[in-house]
Design a binder for these strands. Structure first.
Lengths: 242, 242
DNA sequence: CACAGCCTCACCGTTTTTGGGGAGTTGGAA
DNA sequence: TTCCAACTCCCCAAAAACGGTGAGGCTGTG
């Protein structure tokens, strides 16, 4: 096996993916990808920063609806397991022991989901989390061979797919206020790591009153209602790093 | 260009990476990778959820020491910029406008860091964040060509490298498992967006006392010293999103 | 069934933070 | 030079958060 297989067809699909400029097009792309890889199902499932879900893929609409209605997101072992992991996860290696999980599994099979599956967790900025999933009906051995053979391509596809999805994320307007001054950054950082004002001030070798001015100033610049809010905003915007 | 270039040499290095079973070996691997890609520097830099840093790479020890001593992590535009993005980032596209950033940049050059750079952000479970960086001295055109040619391989290498690093993560066991309950997440989220306890409680239609219990519980679970700290930790670990 | 974890409510006093003032220095930019 | 932004320091009173303790109902798992 080469570093990653050369597949003109996949190349072409990825090209389409990169050039697509609407969310709807992703559905088309994922169907082509499914056919290209020759699996029963392929799904991209995105849990946005606000908790909304977006997905495209080849599961039956009934299953998708059922999944959403029942809030299966919170009990699906695939989601729960992938959330804790980094690398592609074979469904067999997940924890299906709980009663709810087994019921879910059975129901999924009834709705046409394959007995085999591979899910790749993807994480973006601001807590974005997505899953790129392949599912198929076949023997363990066949599935192991398939996943081994295409592992690298799939990781890349997942990456590119998510990159595109991120472009379409609504309301990701970079709310650029002004940056914080160096001292403000230091002060905010110390507060963010749990110091109270007295400790932070001592750590910076300044008076607590001065430190307070920085925090207030940062709060003002960030348009925050209180210190905690300011820290949260600063973290979200990457102005400080903890 | 194929889907990803076939390179036996890279293949071999990745093999070594996958089989390595000690952190020290990663240093060897990254040097080989640097030579394989023919760039001046290659660095893997990991910021754990607890704020500790680990890195391996080919920067001079003096620069690494300087970086750590000065806490450059918090002002490095590469880190700050990559934190907001998903795809590989060319250093030229970052914001170097602040005074601190320019001083940092100048100093980095003095310490042997290249004038060109490409950094790939990587995110793991529990708010893990890492950077896989290549740096080189060459013209803009050469660099653009290089990054275009190797983009896909580099994404994969970054993925594999991080996967290995995660295996070695110290203290991974104690950190995990302390997920917040749904109510705690709601409470923390409201606090994070600037509500005070009364407002948050009203928003959840519960008494302020109850809300307080959630916050305290979350604080305890997260090992935080105060509410602000807890919010920062929850954000860093991706337990809540604003 | 028992136990654990989650959700809900309450009171107490203490500590910390907040929000409003005012005021002096420095160093870089216009 | 003049000006502004950043940095430093101080007081006070009101508001908010904290910490501890206690207690009942509900659900799901072993």
């Amino acid at each position: 096996m080469g570093f990653a297989a050369r597949t003109p067809q996949l190349e072409e699909i990825l090209s389409q993916l990169e050039q697509s400029d609407a969310l709807e097009e992703l559905q088309d792309v994922i169907e082509k990808l499914r056919d290209c890889f020759g699996v029963d199902h392929m799904v991209y499932h995105w849990v946005s920063s606000t908790g909304e879900q977006y997905g495209c893929g080849t599961y039956s609409p009934e299953w998708v609806q059922r999944y959403l209605d029942q809030g299966y997101l919170r009990i699906d072992p695939v989601v729960l397991g992938c959330f804790q992991r980094f690398h592609p996860v074979d469904w067999k290696r997940l924890d299906w022991s709980s009663r709810a999980a087994r019921a879910f599994q059975k129901e999924a099979l009834d709705y046409g989901v394959g007995n085999q599956g591979l899910s790749i967790p993807i994480r973006g900025p601001n807590g974005q989390f997505a899953l790129y999933t392949l599912s198929h009906n076949c023997s363990d051995r066949e599935w192991a061979e398939f996943t081994e053979r295409h592992r690298r391509e799939l990781i890349l596809v997942a990456h590119y797919f998510n990159q595109k999805a991120l472009e379409f994320e609504p309301g990701r307007v970079p709310e650029q206020g002004q940056a914080l001054s160096p001292r403000e950054v230091e002060a905010m950082t110390l507060i963010a790591v749990g110091y109270n004002r007295a400790q932070a001030a001592e750590s910076l070798s300044i008076s607590e009153h001065t430190l307070r001015v920085y925090i207030e100033s940062a709060r003002f610049k960030l348009g925050a209602m209180n210190t905690t809010h300011a820290v949260a905003k600063a973290l979200s915007r990457g102005l400080i790093v903890v």
